[in-house]
Design a protein around this nucleic acid. Structure first.
Lengths: 342, 342
DNA sequence: TTGAAAGCGCTAACAT
DNA sequence: ATGTTAGCGCTTTCAA
């Protein structure tokens, strides 16, 4: 319990402002939110009263009445690996928060087990709080769009690998990025490029690597399976180091994987980029201060975050929902080897 | 549960539940929130109705009425360096969110310029949203507790370096940690230990290093100034590498600084730990996958996060406000050199 | 251009 | 043990 003793406890309400300005509360709303014309002189009195009282609208009341809390939700996959351990997600979350705030929206950011039930539960909780829209970063499992739609709260999928019809989603051009990375390695003169990541015909980064090797007539190095984390990349790196004839070039499907690979190679005395040239994907902060710094396909995070917020706030009709794809760019650093101009 | 209701547009309200259970809304509140005894049979009918309707209380209404949104706020310093670039903050934020959720609270997490005005503005915004309490991670500037108190929303300071009377705060035992780190370096046999970090008589990490060198009669190596980021640590590392007689042991005041130092030493061909042994502070995720992995004083992040949430939720009287200090532990990895038993 | 008034969904004091 | 009711602070018809 807090006593009203010390500071100016009770916050001014609309009624206080109205009284001080000598108008009704409706007029206060009109001058503050628009919705009806207000005489210039009246508006000035109201604004003055607002300033005098330091009035700030109670958002809870506003949310109750209008159904909007001026808040967005961000659901991140809470798996065995803490999401925030991944600098890519961290950076993305940060950018989303900034984009939301720029538009006057607050953000609930919460790691959630990525299974359908948990996501539905969280979405319902958000609905209960009058959250205006939710950005969902999917984890392993797949979500049934119809079930999520039925909750009645606008949502949009981030970090999308496989687009689906009828689903609003945002994602980087994974395939294009993989092509960029692989081509770059080949431009360095390597005649063989290996891959570390998810090995699946449907995975765009895998496909991009595969297609590029074939297209440019380069030997496809071994494809080593890895989850998107450091530990798994480390294991793959150990395998590479143990090979009789390690591949001279490696494309890793994420920065985290590359960091793990790097660690393993260091431990085994394999030099990057001299023995093995490495290019990764994401272009997150951590990639810049690794040793050597990683050449990586940078996802346009700010741009995607901005687009996410924009898309969720002016949600279109169901039949206009679509996937929005963003092209990444190759950031040249040291891990791919000294860059020699073509 | 593929066959749920065909498009539950309107969410069920308390009135709907009451009607279905054949009671008044008050009884629904009583059985859900307690506050009055309810006959067993009645309660069961209510619960059944709740289940049937999939009723979930509207949190906005609840917030308006009760003044509590069941939400906490977390203010992180938004400086020239993005906060989330610092894995320590990232990890802390993550732990706080988890701790809050465990108690049924949601979290607003928002980077804010750390000056007084910006923080006050943000605190006011939180107040209008009926946020129950705010955790503030201070940046460079100092905040006037009285001004913040006057806003009327409970707050608590995290990541505290200098405790203040009358302020609820949480922080690691920085001095103790520095002692641990320095002692460890000395135990490795080094007769000189350098410091990289904030050079200020009031900074506990600096003081801990200083005091330990003196106490153990070891030569105090050069103290190099650095802000808490990678770039600044990198600059310091370059200086170290350029010295005629580089110090054989270095204590870096944060992981980020150490990562920068590491990068610079790598570039200059100075080996860690062979030429320079390095111990840092924080023990964040990134420190584990650097090369070499960093020996670091790990802050008990989960414990501190848990304590923060607990402290803010059962806020005590002003005269009981206090600082809560948490002891870190030294995590041995590779950067300090091969560990040889005493 | 402005005001009166009816709620939004929930809580809790008071009455029964 | 249960019901009635008066708001919380705001938005929004509908009237004036």
């Amino acid at each position: 319990m807090r006593e009203a003793a010390p500071g100016p406890q009770r916050r001014a309400t609309r009624a206080d402002v109205a009284r001080r300005a000598g108008v009704s509360d409706a007029v206060v709303t009109y001058t503050l939110n628009g919705g009806a014309p207000v005489a210039r002189a009246t508006a000035e009195r109201v604004l003055q009263a607002v300033a005098d009282l330091g009035y700030q609208p109670n958002q809870a009341a506003r949310a109750l009445k209008s159904g909007s809390a001026h808040t967005l939700g961000l659901i991140l996959p809470d798996g065995p690996d803490p999401v925030f351990e991944n600098p890519f997600f961290t950076e993305f979350a940060n950018a989303v928060e900034a984009a939301a705030r720029r538009r006057g929206y607050a953000l609930y950011m919460t790691p959630t087990p990525p299974d359908q039930t948990s996501v539905v539960t969280r979405l319902n909780d958000f609905a209960t709080r009058q959250v205006d829209g939710v950005l969902v970063v999917p984890g392993e499992g797949s979500l049934d769009p119809d079930v999520l739609d039925r909750i009645g709260i606008p949502w949009l999928q981030l970090n999308t690998v496989h687009e689906q019809v009828g689903v609003d989603s945002i994602g980087a051009d994974l395939l294009g990025g993989a092509v960029l990375a692989t081509e770059h390695l080949i431009a360095h003169g390597h005649r063989q490029v290996a891959f570390v990541g998810e090995i699946d015909e449907r995975e765009p980064r895998y496909r991009g690597w595969l297609a590029t090797c074939e297209r440019l007539g380069v030997e496809r190095g071994p494809a080593l399976p890895s989850e998107y984390n450091r530990q798994s990349g480390y294991a793959a790196g150990l395998e590479i180091a143990a090979m009789d004839r390690p591949p001279a070039a490696v494309f890793a499907a994420s920065d985290l994987i590359a960091l793990g690979v790097l660690r393993a190679l260091h431990e085994r005395g394999v030099s990057v980029p001299d023995d093995v040239a490495l290019v990764s994907f994401d272009g997150s902060w951590e990639a810049e201060y690794s040793w050597p710094a990683l050449t990586s396909v940078r996802q346009p995070i700010e741009e995607m975050a901005e687009a996410s917020v924009a898309a969720i706030l002016d949600r279109t009709a169901p039949d206009e929902r679509r996937h929005r794809m963003f092209r990444g760019e190759l950031v040249l650093r040291a891990s791919c080897g000294v860059h020699r101009p073509a």
